[in-house]
Design a protein around this nucleic acid. Structure first.
Lengths: 336, 336
DNA sequence: CTGTTAGCGCGTTCAC
DNA sequence: GTGAACGCGCTAACAG
């Protein structure tokens, strides 16, 4: 199977085959409205193109127009997850609606600068999911691409950037627990360094909600995803004065760790300690008791990113609105 | 912030700035070994390029060479997961070693043909993770890209394609359980249709291992990720004659569901029923008892895919060897 | 009206 | 060290 060696037909080949000029071929194939090509000629071109299996060269087209319809998404060093995958899928679909193609590049750990990428592709827009350093910014600008910085978290910087209020997640958690009568809260912080940029705004959200509701600020403990570490965190919460009665977990994994620790330490859930997570991951309903958690509507997220990409292409600033609690769903499960 | 409007410098700009010809600029920037450029001239070029922030245009380069260094990975409609993300990350890193750039396109559900992609990009190689239909194959060939079909599962077809033996996962599970004295096994099959192409070879692996060890073929039950459904599966296993004493789960999620069902039905693990999963997902050590599972070495997987991509580029057939049990690690956790 | 010629865009490379 | 041509598709200006 040696597909690599067959040379692909060019528009000149099609022209020759049809006995016409390259211009005519181009006009027909692009349905140029400024030209009137008689149906007979038109047909000749189409037949020839089909016969040769002609596909226009992306390289030549991009070279001529100076602009490709590629949106390049640079994936940061985040652990991949089902929700993130779902977001990217929706995003690809939405961008396609606008005639744009989403291509993702997994961030490698190599020290080679990202700019190596611009040698390979001329994207119309680059989506960065994190704050870039100045070098990176310069490289993108040099490549002529519009820059869209999409922060999925809530960094407090300004610019052509879009903010997703992870704070709202923390707020929702606190509001739910407070409504259930809890007054002393804990926060289960992830041990994975890479999650810091998500964890901070969520934690901030719980702090602000606590302030609004006149509760003590939550007692933060890092919860490793191993039994011993989680037990230590739980012990700290239970032995505080007054003891913590409910924990906002960074996500469902952390929440699962807290539940496991509770089980081993014979702490009753939710009577002695309540737990709420984020993500509604597949196994969330399989814990003892089933996990109360918050699911997000990633279609809404994708819509905002798309709007931002379009704006960036037109040299406009980032859009103002962003998904809030209205795109998040609290999922309350009955304790078994 | 209107970055989109600044026009990027070309090699002609650099030549003008340095007071030299475009040829010289090209020779210097590419370190052409067939040319002898005096250090002084060389320096002039480099300074000018740096001053203008010159980056060569990918489009022009691709147009000229007829080859881009992009490897396009078409992601099928799989649920994204941490292990899959890890594989893709390793793959990107390895391909970069060979001067290739991995770009991923999330498969959208739109009926628009994949060929729309060729308008945006001319990849050197396309990685398909599934068997393509004939139209798709033709489109890729027409675009001049080499075709590498990488099956992460174990479809029984021949061609320029690489097979990953998911069968080995099933085999390892059975061998472990048999070594622990189990004679009657069950298989926990996923409810998600998209996982079928992974589940089938794994199940086949357990069947073959059972045959080799002269055990009954495993009793297959679909295990939904909800408590009730999982309980039904477990009940079926327990009430079989003779009763199933150990379950090979498709992955750790399924295994977790079985454990949860066991807990609710007061079935003791692992004495009454043993469970083994696949993936070593983060929460695997948080179940009651901690999950025995199989972790995979995705670097080994990435290496094979890379070798295959290189081969496809050179018009050669797929490589023969593939990761087996030697790239899989059995993780046995003590029952609490 | 119909269809052609000519030249652009950008980096690479041969021949002088 | 340079001029010129090439690879491929698009399109303004022009000729039949």
């Amino acid at each position: 199977v040696r597909d690599g060696l067959t040379k692909r037909p060019t528009s000149a080949d099609v022209a020759r085959e049809a006995g016409l000029s390259r211009s005519t071929v181009s006009y027909v194939l692009n349905d140029d409205p400024n030209q009137k090509i008689p149906p007979a000629t038109r047909e000749r071109v189409l037949v020839a193109a089909a016969k040769l299996g002609y596909t226009p060269s992306a390289a030549a087209r991009a070279l001529r127009s100076g602009r490709s319809d590629v949106v390049l998404g640079l994936l940061p060093d985040w652990p991949m997850s089902t929700p993130l995958g779902s977001l990217l899928e929706h995003l690809a679909e939405l961008l396609e609606t606008h005639g744009l193609t989403l291509l993702l590049h997994p961030r490698t750990n190599s020290k080679r600068p990202v700019s190596a990428l611009w040698k390979s592709i001329t994207p119309a827009v680059v989506i960065l999911f994190e704050q870039p350093d100045e070098d990176e910014k310069a490289a993108i600008k040099a490549a002529g691409a519009a820059l869209a910085i999409v922060s999925l978290t809530d960094v407090k910087t300004q610019g052509n950037r879009y903010r997703f209020a992870d704070e709202s997640l923390g707020r929702l958690q606190v509001e739910h627990l407070a409504a259930a009568g809890h007054r002393t809260l804990g926060y289960g912080y992830p041990a994975d360094e890479r999650l810091k940029s998500f964890a901070e705004p969520r934690l901030d959200g719980t702090r602000m909600a606590c302030a609004d509701l006149e509760l003590e600020t939550p007692m933060v403990r890092t919860v490793p995803l191993d039994p011993a570490g989680a037990e230590a965190a739980l012990t700290a919460w239970m032995s505080a004065d007054p003891p913590v009665t409910a924990v906002c977990a960074y996500n469902d994994e952390i929440a699962t760790a807290v539940l496991a620790a509770a089980h081993r330490l014979k702490v009753e859930v939710p009577t002695q300690i309540a737990v709420i997570g984020v993500d509604d991951m597949p196994t969330a309903q399989l814990t003892q008791p089933p996990l109360t958690t918050i699911a997000r509507n990633f279609v809404a997220y994708a819509e905002v990113i798309t709007a931002n990409v379009i704006n960036a292409m037109n040299g406009q600033a980032a859009v103002e609105r962003w998904p809030h609690s209205d795109s998040m769903t609290l999922i309350i499960r009955e304790s078994a």
